[in-house]
Write a protein that binds this DNA or RNA. Sequence first.
DNA 1: TTATTTAGTTGACTTTGTCAACTAAATTTT
DNA 2: AAAATTTAGTTGACAAAGTCAACTAAATAA
Lengths: 146, 146
Amino acid sequence: MKPQHIQELRAFNRFYTNIIGLLDRHILNSNYSLPEVRIMYELYHRSALTASDIIALFDIDKGYLSRILKKFEKSKLINKISSPSDKRAFVVQLSSKGKKEFETLNKASDKQIENFLKNLPDKDCDDLIKKINEAQKLLKKGLGHE
Amino acid sequence: MKPQHIQELRAFNRFYTNIIGLLDRHILNSNYSLPEVRIMYELYHRSALTASDIIALFDIDKGYLSRILKKFEKSKLINKISSPSDKRAFVVQLSSKGKKEFETLNKASDKQIENFLKNLPDKDCDDLIKKINEAQKLLKKGLGHE
DNA sequence: TTATTTAGTTGACTTTGTCAACTAAATTTT
DNA sequence: AAAATTTAGTTGACAAAGTCAACTAAATAA
């Protein structure tokens, strides 16, 4: 690794922090915070998780999570099913209202990205996706050795 | 652009949000918040900016910025030089203490990235940087048409 | 059985960020 | 040039986001 590499990766990080910030701003105009949406995302895709699972996934404070789930419960986005095998724990699932809500957010995010990509000629778009996929693969390789 | 592209870019965004979050956690153990460090970064590299310049750069709330600069001033990281041409405005510069402080943070960030990259074989590292640079170029092209 | 650990909750708190009202100087309009 | 508007930055009041530690109750280990 050359010293230059460090500087270039950091430059990319600054750049991409801005992009992500821009995209996230969008979500922040919804009624949900970033962590909330990410939790919904996981619940949507994994169907059932305990609070502890979510803590492990995101390394989020358990008090904070507890409140987020309480908010979700209050607005009927989730069902808490108390685990029969462990009476302290419960499994969380998105309710159908929760699923619908997530799908709405998800579609909006898709639209946003679509809108962004549509300014890029097809060839460039194809290239871009190839490159980020390859980059991601390499990054994962790097992380694997942590 | 194919529908698949949207999904892949979004997957990358989720992935990279985690990476950035991981890297930033580091800064958050320093005595500075992310916006603070980013402001220092700009001051370090551009040498002199007005508060309005900074607002334009980051699209940050001016009240919030005002307090950040006040904090910097209190800990003698910056000098406020009131502009002779506009008595409402002032130009901000890092003091030598401020420069030193930033350099310390900056070195720690370099180390962190170095540490991350050192797990990646040289060839991969080279590839990775090429790919993110190319991706960045394409992304900028996309943004240019917004 | 006692001790320890684990799952989740709650209260008190800090940090981060937003909003609107405000002062003073600069600029535009008439 | 006087009045009206805009711009630069500050301040107070507040909301949202996040942290920390004490707590209950159940599970597991000694």
